[in-house]
Amino acid sequence: MLVHIFGIKACDTMKKARAFLEAQGIETVFHDYKVEGVTADRLSGWIAAVGWEALLNRSGTTFRKLPEADRQDLTEAKAVALMLAHPSLIRRPVLMNGAEILVGFKPETYARLVG
């Protein structure tokens, strides 16, 4: 099984997710969206699958450092523009297994991939 995992290399949650997948013998292709960015089309596909609210990481330092005006009155269009401009605002990891998309890391959810 080959899955694609998107995130930021130095993120602790990413490290846990990748270690879990490796321990289960699942081959991954890693895309560091802080380094490589993320396309508007890919982001739109994720939003269609899980919603922009699930993708926007409001708890991270990147979000907290945004100007107050950027953090207020969020709409999908505003959130998309922010995530494209600041990929660190995308919750991580984003895991794609065929058509299935998982956002965030929970071992019990990831276990479904190998179960």
Rank of each mutant, 00 (worst) to 15 (best):
3 V>L: 15
3 V>S: 09
3 V>Q: 08
5 I>P: 02
5 I>W: 01
6 F>K: 12
6 F>I: 12
7 G>H: 11
8 I>H: 04
8 I>T: 11
9 K>M: 04
10 A>F: 04
10 A>L: 03
11 C>H: 06
12 D>I: 04
13 T>H: 13
15 K>L: 13
15 K>M: 07
17 A>G: 08
17 A>Q: 13
17 A>V: 06
19 A>H: 10
20 F>E: 10
22 E>D: 15
24 Q>Y: 00
25 G>T: 02
28 T>F: 00
28 T>R: 01
30 F>L: 08
30 F>H: 05
30 F>R: 03
31 H>K: 05
32 D>H: 05
35 V>R: 13
37 G>F: 07
37 G>V: 12
37 G>P: 08
37 G>A: 12
37 G>M: 08
38 V>C: 04
39 T>Y: 06
40 A>W: 00
41 D>Q: 15
41 D>H: 08
42 R>H: 04
42 R>S: 08
42 R>I: 11
43 L>T: 06
44 S>I: 00
44 S>E: 14
44 S>F: 00
45 G>R: 15
46 W>C: 03
47 I>H: 03
49 A>F: 02
50 V>A: 02
50 V>L: 10
51 G>Y: 08
51 G>D: 11
51 G>I: 09
52 W>G: 09
52 W>I: 08
54 A>M: 09
56 L>V: 13
57 N>A: 11
58 R>I: 08
58 R>L: 11
59 S>A: 14
60 G>P: 09
61 T>K: 07
62 T>M: 06
63 F>R: 05
63 F>E: 05
64 R>T: 09
65 K>Q: 14
66 L>H: 03
66 L>C: 08
68 E>K: 14
68 E>F: 00
69 A>T: 12
70 D>L: 12
74 L>C: 13
75 T>Q: 03
75 T>F: 09
76 E>S: 04
79 A>K: 09
80 V>F: 03
82 L>R: 11
85 A>V: 06
86 H>I: 01
87 P>M: 12
87 P>G: 10
88 S>Y: 02
90 I>E: 04
90 I>P: 04
92 R>P: 10
92 R>T: 10
93 P>K: 07
93 P>H: 00
94 V>Q: 13
95 L>V: 02
97 N>D: 15
97 N>H: 15
97 N>S: 13
99 A>P: 03
99 A>M: 05
100 E>L: 01
102 L>V: 14
104 G>H: 11
105 F>D: 09
107 P>D: 12
109 T>I: 11
110 Y>K: 01
112 R>W: 02
112 R>E: 14
113 L>Y: 00
115 G>Q: 15
